[in-house]
Amino acid sequence: MAVGASSRPEVTSQTDVDIKTQLRKHPRVGETLIETFLFVCGAVSILTTIGIVFVLAKESLLFFTSGGVSLTEFFTGTVWQPAIGKFGIWALMNATFMVTTIAMVVALPLGLAVAIYLSEYASLRVRSILKPVLEVLAGIPTVVYGYFALTLMTPVLREIFGDDVVQIYNTAAAGIVVGILILPLVSSMAEDALSAVPDSLRQAAFGLGATKLETATRIVLPAATSGIAAAFIVAISRAIGETMIVAIAAGAGPNFTFNPFNAAETMTGHIVRISGGDLSYDSIDYNSIFAIGLVLFCITLVLNIISRYVVAHFREEYE
């Protein structure tokens, strides 16, 4: 107050009583309005979630109550043929899992190896080149990967295994390319986890006469397990939700098969194909994409929650 006094003469002329009234809290309408607006902005995300859950649940309910499709049939059937009233999600789910498995076989070892190389071996210069390369890879739209799968990966597979073995549309090519798509995700998350391991642990290992490999794989890697596990789970979730690559390269027809060289349609691929046409709002096809969407949403949500749980609860505290 004393400081302000010289510059604000009117304050000095006030009595103590006036000061009290001046200091009393008074409502600032503008501030409150702004805060409310900002809160609403934040709440949009909640509304989105509610919207997703509501829409998926409501239309799925219609799907199951419309008759013809029972829950048991839906979750146990392996034939998806709307024309004859067969809606067995496994025909689609199986293809999704095939693609995801193949993608993981590609992305996990490669991604982890790249992460270890970047974090433990590569010089600063090499890192400064490689990390942007991986970022570029991560920034390419998935439809471009789809083009890649269909026009390069499939012909390569057909070249290797023969045209009669590998169909033009197949889960193998789609899976491998999904693997390449999520590789940067795996490697960058895993590298973050590895880099977060304090240097003192590496020093300790070296001080005991450990080689670089022993230090990397037996001290640093175990110490980063939780982060790496989270990376893997997020990657799986991403692979399951991946759409354009499978829509372009995996096949356009539900097909319950375990042969990776055969065409099969994933959950996401099916949604894209069905909705790509002129979809009538009253058809059972329309309702069915919501049922598939609900299954997809639940799987990815659970995976994401698990990954965050893993990070939060299994992280080592070093300090």
């Binding site: 001080g207 006469g209 450990a210 175990p222 110490a223 070093y318």
Partner: peptide
Amino acid sequence: VEVRRRIGMVFQKPNPFP
């Protein structure tokens, strides 16, 4: 690597492995 086995080291901050 072999040198470090023969000549061990203890660091400023305690750094046991997890």
